[in-house]
């Protein structure tokens, strides 16, 4: 589904990755960890084709970073659910409209949009807030809306960049539980985080660790 093959990436002042490679398959639940500034967000942005590697290729659902055409990028992004640390909700529209936006972009009919939006809002637990604007919601609620927006298109993979970064530990774990539920229903989940407490609690999950410009592929060990 996602394949990073011999990727190197540098910013003008810093080399972030040197010949890294990994795959993420359907239905997987994968954490991406690493110190601040090691390139977690950069790596996720390569999946979204916001950034392109200096060498090597990223293949996402058959779209190859080497030869993807500009008009194809929006089509790829519609197949990926993206959740951000700062939620990135549009403050000039209410919860319903925020979540419905990807469906409008996909050209669905209003009655289908309504049904899908209410279903997903119910699933993530913010159904009652559908008329509220983002500023009227708590951080946890905003992140749930952001997850709803990412999931409403039924993507194959949900990518979350520090989804608990702005949340307290209790709410953070609630969000992770929500992501686990989404994964149980078949959607692959790829989470970049530096919240090691959460990572440690999820034994048996796959872990990608960025260290010394490389990506190490490990599994979180079961205790005892």
């Amino acid at each position: 589904m996602i394949n990073f093959d011999s990727i190197s990436f540098s910013y003008p002042s810093k080399e972030l990755f040197n010949n890294i490679g990994f795959k993420i398959d359907k239905g997987e639940f994968v954490f991406l960890i690493g110190e601040s500034g090691t390139g977690k967000t950069t790596l996720l942005r390569m999946i979204n084709m916001e950034l392109f590697p200096s060498t090597g290729e990223v293949v996402v659902y058959g779209y190859n970073s080497k030869n993807i055409k500009k008009p194809e990028i929006p089509l790829l992004r519609r197949k990926i659910g993206f959740v951000f640390q700062d939620y990135k909700l549009l403050n000039d529209r209410d919860v319903f409209e925020n979540v419905a936006l990807p469906l409008y972009l996909a050209g669905l009919k209003p009655d289908v949009i309504k049904k899908k939006v209410f279903n997903i809002l119910n699933e993530v637990g913010v159904f009652d807030s559908y008329k509220k604007f983002p500023v009227e919601l708590s951080g946890g609620e905003q992140q749930r809306v952001s997850i709803a927006r990412a999931m409403v298109n039924e993507p194959y993979i949900l990518i979350a960049d520090e989804p608990t970064g702005n949340l307290d530990p209790f709410v953070s774990f609630e969000i992770i539980k929500l992501l686990l539920n989404i994964n149980l229903k078949g959607t692959a989940v790829f989470i970049a985080t530096h919240n090691y407490d959460i990572v440690k609690r999820l034994k048996g999950k796959r872990l990608l660790q960025i260290k010394d410009k490389k990506v190490l592929d490990v599994v979180i060990k079961e205790q005892g």
């Binding site: 929006p74 089509l75 992004r77 993206f82 990135k88 549009l90 936006l101 990807p102 972009l105 927006r149």
Partner: peptide
């Protein structure tokens, strides 16, 4: 600017 950025990230086309 932020609205445009978010629209791009969730798959809006240029024309949209």
């Amino acid at each position: 600017k932020d609205t445009i950025e978010i629209m791009k990230l969730i798959g809006s086309t240029k024309e949209t």
